[in-house]
Design a protein around this nucleic acid. Structure first.
Length: 156
DNA sequence: GCCAACGTTGGC
DNA sequence: GCCAACGTTGGC
């Protein structure tokens, strides 16, 4: 089992949107980066926990905890000509983009980016590294525990 | 809106 | 396969 961090712009899809979704589940659609896709397609397993991170917003930070509820399958939006995630080079026979499904485990207090940065125990956290833009990154077990503690979560 | 950093594209 | 140009990300 591995731990992950998933970024989402709350204007697009927030933790409250996930809480309001049917079954509190959603396909993690719209990822159009090969490395992030490969994490979903090749490494994420059902039951893996992940932080839900709000990016590109007034208060960036960790907003909650989700878990992988379904292994990777083709991202439906790549086939949808009306979607901004449409990919004309993708076909149903040869999909390019995959997504897992995630389920909300717990909405936590918002742990601001500045608080993550200020914590020496999180110096190696991927999203804090210079130039990092990847929307899906692995989280080390010690980092996971530390952030759970900061967030006031019972999860470990 | 700025800008650093990075990924992708496409000509050669 | 190289690499310049371009587009995107995301914090500030």
């Amino acid at each position: 089992m591995r731990h992950w961090l998933l970024k989402s712009e709350p204007d697009e899809f927030s933790i409250d949107d996930l809480a309001a979704a049917k079954g509190r589940k959603v396909a993690w659609f719209g990822v159009r980066n090969y490395q992030a896709r490969n994490y979903m397609r090749d490494e994420m397993q059902v039951g893996d926990p992940a932080f839900f991170y709000h990016s590109s917003c007034p208060e960036p930070g960790i907003a909650g905890i989700v878990e992988v509820s379904k292994a990777a399958f083709p991202d439906a939006t790549q086939f949808d000509a009306a979607s901004k995630y449409h990919d004309p080079k993708a076909t149903r026979a040869a999909p390019r983009w995959f997504n897992v499904e995630v389920r909300l485990v717990e909405k936590t207090r918002l742990v601001p980016l500045a608080e993550l940065r200020a914590d020496p125990a999180l110096a190696t956290l991927r999203i804090l590294q210079r130039g990092n833009r990847l929307s899906i990154t692995p989280v080390e077990p010690a980092e996971w525990s530390r952030i759970c503690r900061l967030a006031g979560s019972r999860a470990r």
